[in-house]
């Protein structure tokens, strides 16, 4: 056997097969999951997307943002603006929201990248607050109280409520597959190697000729686009948006950070584990209200201090598993 570098392990190949099987089953969910089940799955897909994108941003590129709600809200508002005011079909608005966010991300990065490390975090938050305040000044979009999607547009998507829900479900599933697939492709590409190097040691990456600033900028723009598309879909499902809901730091950043940290930051598989934990906790503890959020915060702190690579990292370090063939490893000669 000749030596070389491989990404696949036996476990990761099995993982790949299992993932495909799951995907097929999920595609047929409208026929077996029921309405509440479908709604839960949509939520899970969208949180998985948001967490995976934040993971790419913070876990790999080292851009610890607490302002990604800027792009969730932006995506939602682009959709509502185009659909309600210009009559663009809502589903078409989703990719447009992504493109708009990518363009807006450039000046946002130009300013916030001047802040380093932890200060970047708060700077990104200020940026999101600017977005929220600007949105509440636009009276055509309902100002501070928000706007609903006109009934005509809603019924034009699908005549029945059930039909609409199935449509949104499939779009959510498709968006998740597309974005996660995009992240996998990115991590397996030449840029992925640069990103992994960046994650492991920024100084070393820099001295090995990786253009750190450019890499970070590209990731920031791509993540903004993905986040905005998820945001557009979230509010298409809700049929209503307001500045406080669209740019909520709790819903779109706190939860997303907790999911990623609990699951395992800097590992592609982390957010999967985190989403499962998050939804199990939510379904069992959500009645506790604010107490539930305190528990979630405490778990995140505990994980950060005791198992900084998250639950997945904790398990993987002990069993040397990976669910997807992403990590490069040297094969014995």
């Amino acid at each position: 056997m000749s030596g070389g570098v491989t990404r696949a392990t036996r476990a990761s190949n099995i993982g790949l097969v299992l993932a495909l099987a799951c995907l097929v089953a999920l595609a047929f969910a409208p026929f077996w999951a029921g309405r509440d089940g479908m709604r839960l799955l949509i939520d899970a897909y969208l949180y998985l997307v948001l967490a995976s994108l934040w993971n790419l941003l913070a876990g790999y590129a080292g851009l610890v943002s607490v302002g990604q709600q800027a792009f969730v809200g932006l995506g939602g508002y682009v959709l509502f603006g185009l659909a309600a005011l210009a009559g663009v079909p809502p589903l078409l608005c989703i990719p447009i929201a992504g493109i708009a966010a990518a363009i807006i991300a450039i000046p946002v990065a130009a300013i916030t990248f001047r802040l380093r490390g932890a200060y970047f975090a708060i700077g990104s938050w200020v940026m999101a607050e600017v977005f929220r305040l600007v949105a509440s000044q636009i009276s055509a979009l309902g100002g501070g109280s928000g706007i609903s999607l006109p009934a005509g547009i809603v019924t034009a998507m699908a005549a029945s409520r059930h039909g609409r829900e199935i449509l949104v479900y499939w779009v959510a599933l498709g968006l998740m597959v597309a974005i996660l697939g995009g992240i996998v492709a990115l991590l397996r590409s030449r840029h992925g190697l640069a990103l992994t190097a960046l994650r492991d040691n920024e100084m070393a990456a820099r001295s090995n000729g990786i253009d750190v600033r450019r890499t970070k900028l590209v990731v920031f723009i791509l993540v903004a686009a993905g986040t905005a598309m998820a945001g557009a879909l979230i509010f298409l499902q809700r049929l209503r948006i307001s500045p406080d809901a669209g740019f909520s730091v709790n819903d779109w950043t706190a939860f997303v950070i907790f999911i990623t940290v609990i699951g395992g930051i800097g590992r592609f598989e982390g957010p999967f584990v985190g989403v499962v934990v998050f939804f199990v906790l939510r379904e069992t503890l959500a009645d506790l209200g604010s107490l539930y959020l305190m528990i979630l915060g405490a778990i995140a702190i505990l994980v950060m201090l005791k198992a900084p690579r998250g639950l997945f990292g904790f398990i993987a370090e002990r069993t040397d598993t990976q669910l997807l063939p992403l990590q490069r490893r040297v094969r014995g000669v």
Binding site: A58, V64, V66, G117, A118, A121, N250, A254, I257, F258, V261, I265, L293, M294, L296, G297, A298, A300, I301, M304, L305, P308
Partner: peptide, 14 residues
């Protein structure tokens, strides 16, 4: 920089 940031963020939510 991540642990202090996330720990104080969690503290803020708590």
């Amino acid at each position: 920089i991540l642990p202090p940031l996330l720990v104080t963020f969690g503290l803020s939510v708590i």
